[in-house]
Design a protein around this nucleic acid. Structure first.
Lengths: 271, 271
DNA sequence: CGCGAGATTGACTCGGGTCAATAGTAGTGG
DNA sequence: CCACTACTATTGACCCGAGTCAATCTCGCG
């Protein structure tokens, strides 16, 4: 339902093969190539000396907002690394509803869920213009054999993703709406900081609906919670612009400090 | 708080090294060894011809109910495969609360979350007597290099775990309490069937509290929901004994059929 | 300018959490 | 064998957090 008109989509699989297809100017932007060294730096993997000399080149592909990098059920043969831009990964349940699983950004690897069953279990949609590095899985495994540290790193990255999902499960299972939104903001802030942007002021790249889906909440609850944080002075919100005012409180917040609603009740009680 | 008295625990790491330690009769039960072929069959991995001849042996260790196989923060060097018995894996959040992440049983691999950071992110506790196969990760990786299908299979298993967690997130984010409990029962039923036991009648190995933690519900809600299913005739429950009466309805259940509460509302509406 | 997608806010409802009482079950030791 | 203790499970009463429905507002964009 979302993004219907924009989705010519899925241009990646059409050109996985040769280098020539890009040099001939696909989408007038696919001009970048990265070597193994670049890839490892993006993924924050310690580079072994042998890797610096490897001359295999990884192809980049550009996507515009709304385009899909891969879709559910599509045959798997690639992993993807975000070089720039913002995306969401989405799982479609049996009744057709979207569930947002994550918001990959610079340095993040996605597509891992395609390894099992050789087809992607989720779909990845660009939320902004994106520059994505294609990583042919077969080739990646072969490189792993040549460079032991790389193989270890691949396992490590997959393990990290698993831990991330476990933490997500834990959050959904036990935290209140306010705590979830607070953590979401802190997590975004940290990731922006790590990318070299400001962690205090940033723009959300996703809608309230997408945030809600990600956090297991409705868009109204997300909106209300952000407004509440705004009133309390934890943040300043204006549409998609966020400014963190009290990071410490956000990090430790478990439930909202006694709001007006509770104050009202208590006033009645003491009267 | 749970299992305090029973936890001499963690005997595995004391004997990871030599074969002699077991043959000398540790805990008077660690007498079994498996080869690569056995391990692959347990994990349902197609065995290549080369693997049949590999003579490396994997050590088994027994755990009694309540013992921990590994704990949070413990240095990682092993993966574990369940040969028999039932366990739970648990993540401890910063305020000390347990969150149940899964219930490994025969054929399941766990400990994967230890690869990243070289220490386990969760802990695994036996819910019954268990026979566990120790898989030294370093050795496993080396075997992967020798047998290409095995390496692919390791990646595949890790990818499958990731998909499982994603499905879990999706469930917690979108399903009602009844739907979660229904799915839990169906999932258990399927797993018991796959293990060769009855999928229609089985005993729960975990408490209501553990089920609730796993599903993001309280133990009271789990108990009430099981009672409701019992009344509707979907299942028969007696304490931990479960008998599935209407598997089809359980599989498709999204919310409970119009209960007395809703009937009341509708009666008022039509009056 | 009007249109449509997104965001905000209010009013109302209800699913499921909380608290509490009771009962069933298992293991322990006298 | 039974009594004692400690879990575990069931069930009821109550209530609050967050979902639902709906109106309004904002902001780009053609």
């Amino acid at each position: 339902m979302l993004c219907t008109s924009i989705t010519e989509s899925n241009s990646a699989s059409a050109l996985t093969g040769t280098r020539a297809s890009v040099e001939s100017g696909w989408q007038r932007a696919g001009k970048l190539w990265s070597n193994l060294n670049d890839v490892c730096e993006l993924l924050r993997i310690a580079v072994g000396t042998s890797m610096v000399e490897d001359d295999f080149l990884f192809q980049h592909v550009q996507f515009k907002a709304g385009q899909r990098v891969h879709t559910v059920g599509q045959p798997f043969d690639m992993l993807y690394i975000v070089n720039s831009g913002f995306l969401k990964t989405v799982m479609i349940d049996e009744s057709g509803n979207e569930q947002v699983l994550g918001f990959p950004m610079k340095g993040d690897l996605f597509g891992i869920d395609g390894i099992h069953n050789r087809q992607y279990a989720s779909e990845a949609v660009a939320l902004s213009s994106c520059d994505i590095i294609l990583v042919p899985f077969k080739k990646f495994m072969a490189l792993g054999k040549a460079h032991a540290e790389l193989e270890t790193a691949i396992y490590s990255v997959m393990s990290r993703e698993l831990i991330r999902e476990q933490a997500m499960v834990s959050m959904l299972g036990s935290l209140s709406a306010e705590a979830r939104v607070a953590r979401f903001l802190v997590s975004l802030s940290d990731r922006f900081s790590a990318m070299g942007y400001s962690g205090r002021e940033f723009n959300l790249r996703m809608t309230r609906h997408e945030i809600g889906s990600y956090l297991g909440l409705t868009l109204e609850t997300v909106s209300r919670t952000l407004s509440a944080f705004n009133e309390i002075g934890l943040i300043a919100v204006d549409q998609r612009a966020i400014s963190i005012k009290d990071a410490a409180s956000l990090k430790t917040l478990r439930r909202l400090p006694p709001s007006r609603a509770r104050a009202k009740r208590e006033a009645v009680g003491t009267a």
